[in-house]
Simulated scan of single mutants.
Amino acid sequence: MGDQALWESVECDEVLAVLRELPPCQRQALALTFDGFTPAEIAQILDVPAVQVRGNLARARRAAVTALGKREGGEGQ
C-alpha cells in the first residue's frame, strides 16, 4: 500500500515525531493503520463512523507528508 511504502523509507524516530504532532484522532487512526487495520476496523475499535476515520486518515497523511517534507528540506523551509 501507499502508506507502507512511504513509511518504510522513514526512520522510526521521525515517524514517532510526526505522530506526536498530529491531533489525537488523526494519530490514533494513522497508528492503527500502521498496525494493519482497515478504516472499517478502526471505526469499530474507536466506536466512530468509518467516514470519520477516512477523513482523519486523509488529514493525517497530508500533515505527515508536509512534516516529513519540512524535515527533509531542512530548517529553512
Rank of each mutant, 00 (worst) to 15 (best):
V15P: 01
V15Y: 02
V15T: 12
V15D: 01
V15E: 07
L16A: 11
L16H: 10
L16R: 12
L16S: 05
A17T: 08
A17Q: 11
A17E: 12
V18C: 14
V18F: 06
V18K: 04
L19E: 08
R20A: 10
R20C: 02
R20K: 06
E21Y: 04
E21I: 05
L22G: 09
L22W: 09
P23I: 07
P23V: 09
P24S: 09
P24N: 05
P24R: 11
P24Q: 09
C25P: 05
C25Y: 04
C25R: 12
C25N: 11
Q26R: 15
Q26I: 12
Q26P: 07
R27T: 02
R27P: 03
Q28R: 13
Q28M: 09
A29T: 13
L30S: 00
A31H: 04
A31D: 03
L32V: 02
L32G: 03
L32Y: 07
L32W: 06
T33G: 02
T33R: 14
T33W: 03
F34L: 13
F34P: 00
F34M: 12
F34S: 06
D35H: 08
G36T: 03
G36M: 02
G36A: 04
G36Q: 02
G36N: 02
F37G: 00
T38W: 04
T38L: 14
P39G: 07
P39A: 11
A40N: 05
A40G: 09
A40I: 03
E41Y: 00
E41D: 01
E41C: 00
I42D: 00
I42A: 01
A43W: 08
A43T: 11
A43R: 10
Q44M: 04
Q44H: 07
Q44F: 01
Q44R: 14
Q44K: 15
Q44W: 02
I45N: 04
I45V: 13
I45K: 12
I45E: 08
L46V: 06
L46N: 02
D47T: 08
D47M: 11
D47R: 15
D47W: 07
D47F: 05
V48W: 03
V48S: 03
P49Q: 09
P49H: 11
A50I: 07
V51T: 09
V51K: 07
Q52K: 14
Q52F: 13
R54V: 08
G55D: 10
N56I: 06
N56D: 15
N56G: 12
N56P: 03
N56A: 15
L57A: 07
L57N: 03
A58M: 13
R59I: 03
R59G: 01
R59E: 10
A60T: 09
R61P: 01
R62L: 11
